[in-house]
């Protein structure tokens, strides 16, 4: 589904070159739920934005759904983002000028979908996240957890193959975070591929697979004793 090999990303400023990612290798299979963890500044967000075609990369290869995406033009990238990828951001990123219904509608309109189908999908997605009754509310009138659920509905409405979430619970309290996590698990059970960046070991432990990033590279968690204990503890907590 998502395969990066020897991928690198360099940010150049006048004075320095920062390798946000270097020799980055990952292979996410169709239907997998992968949690990406790692220290701050390690390159998790960079990985996710490249995976989501929000940004280009400097070297290596990236195949999304068996398609080499390195040489696509901007319109083609927009189309893939619209049809194949659902984004969930830490800051929710709802459009404040639009109500819940219209927010969920945004990607569907860019797809050129007809109004009746849009409506059906929007209401379906909102029901799924339990916010059908709030369709006419504006983002400012909702709690953080509710806003993130709307954002998830917006990501789901277009039935994307791949869901990318960057610390989706980072701005939520534990209670709300749990609700969002349960929702993601449910979506995963229905067949979506999910890649989620998180700082929360408890949430990470609930994913099928954990990928750890340090200094722009994927490291094998099992071989790194420093994180092994934390991982085991978190995993144990969840199982217990």
């Amino acid at each position: 589904m998502l395969k990066m090999t020897h991928l690198s990303k360099v940010y150049r400023t006048e004075v320095v070159e920062t390798y946000a990612l270097r020799d980055f290798n990952i292979d996410v299979k169709e239907g997998e739920f992968v949690a990406v963890t790692g220290p701050s500044g390690s390159g998790k967000t960079t990985f996710l934005t490249i995976a989501g075609l929000l940004e280009t990369f400097t070297g290596g290869t990236y195949h999304l759904d068996n398609l080499d995406v390195s040489n696509l033009d901007d319109n083609a990238r927009s189309k893939i983002r619209n049809e194949k990828i659902g984004f969930i951001f830490q800051a929710f990123n709802l459009i404040p000028d639009l109500n819940v219904f219209d927010n969920v509608e945004v990607p569907l309109r860019y797809r050129g979908m007809k109004a009746p189908e849009r409506k059906e999908r929007i209401m379906g997605a909102l029901e799924r996240v339990g916010l059908a009754s709030r369709a006419k509310h504006y983002p400012a009138e909702l709690s953080g957890g509710q806003q993130q659920r709307v954002a998830i509905a917006r990501a789901l409405a277009g039935s994307p193959r791949l869901l990318l979430a960057d610390e989706p619970t980072g701005n939520l309290d534990t209670q709300m975070a749990r609700g969002v996590m349960e929702l993601l698990e449910e979506i995963h059970r229905d067949g979506a591929t999910i890649v989620m960046v998180t700082h929360d070991p408890e949430l990470a432990a609930r994913a099928q697979r954990n990928v750890h990033v340090i200094d722009g590279q994927v490291v094998d968690l099992a071989e790194d004793p420093r994180f092994h204990t934390a991982y085991a503890a978190a995993a144990g907590q969840v199982r217990g």
Binding site: D74, S78, R81, N82, N93, V106, Y110
Partner: peptide
């Protein structure tokens, strides 16, 4: 920001 969000959700130039 909302323009960026729209672009992320599939809006073209």
């Amino acid at each position: 920001r909302q323009i960026g969000v729209r672009r992320a959700l599939g809006a073209t130039h």
